[in-house]
Design a protein around this nucleic acid. Structure first.
Length: 195
DNA sequence: AAAACGATCTACT
DNA sequence: GTAGATCGTTTTG
């Protein structure tokens, strides 16, 4: 049974949510058909001391949904592509988890059609590519990922410790580097050279 | 109103 | 591994 992750799942530190989103299922039920993908790479953006976070310099029109309640989508455009985040922590605390890559599970044909590419590797590997494959765009900014809308995230098979890779990211103004990027080890659908 | 800036992707080597 | 494309959002004048 595919069951949505509850809103309370997202009401935690973004790094914890990023780690636990690995293995979950991204689902879009559109007019054109259903696409399902297994989340294999994520990245956390912190509410404080994170210069790489879009909310670092306060709220703008673009990042407003990051300041909203947990479990909402934050969708923004960058370099002519869309990127999907899950908002974390309570309203007023602007943090989120970027979905960086998913493994195609259902709807390969539809994904290939939307992407204009046939090769499976190129369907959903990367935040911009997966949004194109899932037809995610600005219309989903601020929508609920835990409700009964067309775009949602379901619990999947949690990854074991040995299957989980982690790496650091610069941009955090703390003395030590923080582990903010999470990925499925040995999965060919992760976008980074990690592995 | 104009310019600068990317949480990226593709093509090519 | 990297150069170049690309366009919505933000910042600046």
């Amino acid at each position: 049974m595919r069951r949505p992750l509850r809103q309370s799942f997202y009401d935690r530190e973004p790094a914890v949510v990023a780690r636990e989103l690995l293995g979950a299922l991204l689902i879009h039920n559109s007019e054109d058909g259903m696409t399902v993908g297994r989340i294999v790479e994520t990245e956390a953006y912190l509410a404080e001391n994170d210069t790489a976070c879009h909310a670092y310099r306060g709220m703008t029109r673009r990042n407003a949904s990051m300041f909203g309640p947990p479990g909402m989508a934050y969708v923004y455009a960058i370099h002519s592509r869309w990127c999907l985040n899950a908002v974390t922590q309570p309203a007023g605390t602007a943090s989120a988890v970027l979905i960086r890559a998913v493994e195609p599970i259902e709807g390969h044909e539809l994904m290939a059609q939307r992407r204009g590419r046939e090769r499976e590797l190129e369907l959903c590997r990367g935040p911009g590519r997966l949004c194109q494959a899932f037809a995610v765009d600005r219309r989903f900014d601020g929508s609920e990922l835990f409700g009964d809308g067309p775009l949602w995230i379901a619990s999947g098979s949690p990854l074991s410790e040995s299957e989980t890779g982690v790496s650091t990211r610069i941009g955090v103004t703390s003395a030590q580097d923080l582990e903010l990027r999470f990925f499925h080890r040995n999965c060919r659908f992760v976008s980074r050279g990690s592995r």
